[in-house]
Protein backbone atom coordinates (compact mmCIF):
# COMPACT_ATOMS: atom_id res chain seq x y z
CA UNK A 1 0.00 0.00 0.00
CA UNK A 2 1.05 3.62 -0.28
CA UNK A 3 1.66 6.14 2.45
CA UNK A 4 -1.59 7.79 1.33
CA UNK A 5 -3.44 4.53 2.13
CA UNK A 6 -1.76 4.42 5.52
CA UNK A 7 -2.84 7.99 6.15
CA UNK A 8 -6.45 7.14 5.23
CA UNK A 9 -6.58 3.92 7.25
CA UNK A 10 -5.30 5.72 10.34
CA UNK A 11 -7.23 8.91 9.76
CA UNK A 12 -3.85 10.54 10.24
CA UNK A 13 -2.51 14.03 9.92
CA UNK A 14 0.56 14.53 7.77
CA UNK A 15 3.10 16.63 9.65
CA UNK A 16 6.12 16.25 7.37
CA UNK A 17 6.60 14.70 3.94
CA UNK A 18 3.40 15.43 2.03
CA UNK A 19 5.38 14.91 -1.17
CA UNK A 20 6.01 11.26 -0.33
CA UNK A 21 2.42 10.03 -0.19
CA UNK A 22 2.90 7.70 -3.17
CA UNK A 23 5.71 5.81 -1.43
CA UNK A 24 5.09 2.04 -1.17
CA UNK A 25 5.21 0.39 2.27
CA UNK A 26 4.89 -3.28 3.19
CA UNK A 27 6.26 -3.74 6.69
CA UNK A 28 6.02 -2.04 10.07
CA UNK A 29 7.68 -2.08 13.45
CA UNK A 30 6.02 -0.80 16.60
CA UNK A 31 8.10 0.10 19.63
CA UNK A 32 8.89 2.71 22.24
CA UNK A 33 12.49 1.61 22.72
CA UNK A 34 14.80 3.00 20.11
CA UNK A 35 17.42 0.33 20.80
CA UNK A 36 14.74 -2.26 20.05
CA UNK A 37 14.06 -0.54 16.75
CA UNK A 38 17.79 -0.49 16.03
CA UNK A 39 18.05 -4.19 16.80
CA UNK A 40 15.17 -5.37 14.64
CA UNK A 41 13.59 -2.93 12.23
CA UNK A 42 14.14 -3.33 8.53
CA UNK A 43 14.94 -0.58 6.03
CA UNK A 44 11.83 0.74 4.31
CA UNK A 45 9.50 -0.10 7.21
CA UNK A 46 7.01 2.13 8.96
CA UNK A 47 7.95 2.97 12.53
CA UNK A 48 4.97 3.15 14.91
CA UNK A 49 5.82 4.79 18.20
CA UNK A 50 4.53 6.85 21.08
CA UNK A 51 7.79 8.79 21.34
CA UNK A 52 8.19 12.22 19.75
CA UNK A 53 11.71 13.34 20.65
CA UNK A 54 14.33 14.04 17.95
CA UNK A 55 16.03 10.69 18.62
CA UNK A 56 13.12 9.00 16.85
CA UNK A 57 14.14 10.83 13.67
CA UNK A 58 17.83 10.04 14.21
CA UNK A 59 16.96 6.37 14.64
CA UNK A 60 14.81 6.39 11.52
CA UNK A 61 17.62 8.04 9.58
CA UNK A 62 20.21 5.51 10.69
CA UNK A 63 17.95 2.63 9.63
CA UNK A 64 16.43 4.13 6.47
CA UNK A 65 12.94 3.90 7.95
CA UNK A 66 10.27 4.89 5.39
CA UNK A 67 8.03 6.96 7.64
CA UNK A 68 7.15 7.54 11.28
CA UNK A 69 3.64 7.13 12.65
CA UNK A 70 3.19 8.92 15.95
CA UNK A 71 0.35 7.32 17.89
CA UNK A 72 -2.04 8.25 20.68
CA UNK A 73 -2.76 11.78 19.44
CA UNK A 74 0.70 13.04 20.36
CA UNK A 75 2.20 15.89 18.37
CA UNK A 76 5.96 16.04 17.84
CA UNK A 77 7.78 19.14 19.13
CA UNK A 78 9.13 21.66 16.62
CA UNK A 79 12.74 20.43 16.89
CA UNK A 80 11.60 16.95 15.86
CA UNK A 81 9.58 18.33 12.95
CA UNK A 82 12.54 20.42 11.77
CA UNK A 83 14.90 17.46 11.89
CA UNK A 84 12.44 15.23 10.01
CA UNK A 85 12.08 17.93 7.39
CA UNK A 86 15.83 18.21 7.04
CA UNK A 87 16.26 14.44 6.74
CA UNK A 88 13.23 13.95 4.47
CA UNK A 89 11.50 11.52 6.81
CA UNK A 90 7.69 11.74 6.73
CA UNK A 91 5.78 11.98 10.02
CA UNK A 92 2.10 11.11 10.36
CA UNK A 93 0.10 11.56 13.55
CA UNK A 94 -2.88 9.41 14.44
CA UNK A 95 -5.26 9.56 17.39
CA UNK A 96 -5.29 5.77 17.70
CA UNK A 97 -3.24 3.94 20.32
CA UNK A 98 -0.40 1.76 19.06
CA UNK A 99 -2.51 -1.41 19.45
CA UNK A 100 -5.31 -0.03 17.29
CA UNK A 101 -2.84 1.43 14.77
CA UNK A 102 -1.08 -1.91 14.39
CA UNK A 103 -4.41 -3.73 14.19
CA UNK A 104 -5.78 -1.51 11.44
CA UNK A 105 -2.64 -1.75 9.33
CA UNK A 106 -2.29 -5.49 9.90
CA UNK A 107 -5.86 -5.99 8.76
CA UNK A 108 -5.00 -4.28 5.48
CA UNK A 109 -1.95 -6.42 4.83
CA UNK A 110 1.03 -4.70 6.44
CA UNK A 111 3.21 -7.22 8.26
CA UNK A 112 5.78 -6.92 11.01
CA UNK A 113 9.47 -7.13 10.36
CA UNK A 114 12.33 -8.75 12.16
CA UNK A 115 15.66 -8.53 10.53
CA UNK A 116 18.34 -9.32 13.00
CA UNK A 117 21.77 -8.76 11.60
CA UNK A 118 24.10 -11.49 12.76
CA UNK A 119 27.76 -10.94 13.42
CA UNK A 120 30.22 -13.59 12.42
CA UNK A 121 31.41 -14.73 15.83
Amino acid sequence: MTLQDVKDILDAEMIVGGDKLDMEVKTAFGADLMSDVLAYAKAGSLLLTGLTNPQVIRTANVLDIAAIIVVRGKKPPQETVNLADEMHIPILCTKYILFETAGRLYQKGIVGCVEKVQSKS
Binding site: D32, L33, M34, S35, D36, V37, L38, A39, T49, L51, N53, Q55, V56, T59
Partner: peptide, 10 residues
Protein backbone atom coordinates in the same frame (compact mmCIF):
# COMPACT_ATOMS: atom_id res chain seq x y z
CA UNK B 1 14.70 5.99 29.33
CA UNK B 2 12.12 8.55 28.26
CA UNK B 3 14.14 9.05 25.10
CA UNK B 4 13.69 5.38 24.30
CA UNK B 5 17.17 4.31 25.33
CA UNK B 6 18.60 2.82 28.49
CA UNK B 7 16.89 -0.53 28.09
CA UNK B 8 20.18 -2.37 28.35
CA UNK B 9 20.40 -3.17 24.66
CA UNK B 10 22.91 -0.67 23.32
Amino acid sequence: REMGFGAGMG
